[in-house]
């Protein structure tokens, strides 16, 4: 296969993507083929060395397509589709609800972790201010409050990095789940 044939074949396989995504992919492969040829390969070898065009297209589509596009059909819904949708609507609503709940839970856990972190710092700051303002009234207690407040701020600062890392991992997990679902749907369509 020569370069222009490869580009047009790839373009056809990517036709479900927005035009700017198609252009970006074509520009990348055009540049790669030109670089391979500049490195001394003939056009045929430069193209064939890229691998199977179907796999290339599938990887691009998988990455650039939102999950909803994999689930909903491209064609307009037929009457039997609508009948089945109505019949299965309780199940569909339940499934959508579960997905939303999982997403919300992840966000809630992440938000809660950050809120705990902020609370430690804010409580610490409030404690320091309170102990300074009220210092003369009860010196031993205020010294204790001051020290505990410093600890609280310290805990807040120390916890920030692991919370940030944990949140990233948690969010990364949802991305993995979405990719897994996309792959399942692509295989079903094939």
């Amino acid at each position: 296969m020569n370069k222009s044939k490869f580009m047009s074949e790839l373009s056809i396989r990517l036709n479900t993507l927005p035009q700017h995504e198609i252009n970006k992919s074509l520009a990348y492969y055009s540049e790669i083929i030109a670089d391979r040829m500049e490195d001394g390969m003939c056009e045929e070898v430069a193209v064939s060395g890229l691998g199977d065009i179907d796999e290339i297209a599938q990887e691009i589509v998988l990455d650039a397509t939102p999950i909803s596009k994999f689930i909903l059909p491209n064609r307009p819904l037929s009457s039997s589709d609508i009948f089945l949708l109505v019949l299965c609507s309780p199940l569909i609503i339940l499934l959508i609800g579960i997905v939303i709940l999982i997403y919300l839970s992840v966000w809630l856990v992440i938000s809660a972790l950050y809120l705990i972190n902020i609370s430690f710092v804010l409580v610490g700051l409030a404690g320091i201010v309170a102990s300074i303002v009220d210092f003369r009234n009860n010196i031993p207690i205020n010294i204790l409050i001051f020290i505990v407040s410093l600890f609280s701020i310290g805990i807040g600062i120390v916890l920030y990095a692991p919370i940030k890392k944990g949140s990233k991992k948690l969010w990364g997990l949802t991305t993995l789940v979405i990719r897994y679902i996309k792959i399942k749907f692509i295989r079903k369509k094939d």
């Binding site: 540049e31 691998g51 691009i60």
Partner: peptide, 23 residues
């Protein structure tokens, strides 16, 4: 660096192709 060079430099150490690099 650019796509082709990244693949060339990396393929000395790990298995990678231009198609893997794009995503």
């Amino acid at each position: 660096s650019y796509g082709y060079k990244i693949v060339r430099d990396l393929s000395e150490h790990v298995e990678i192709t231009e198609s893997t690099l794009y995503p």
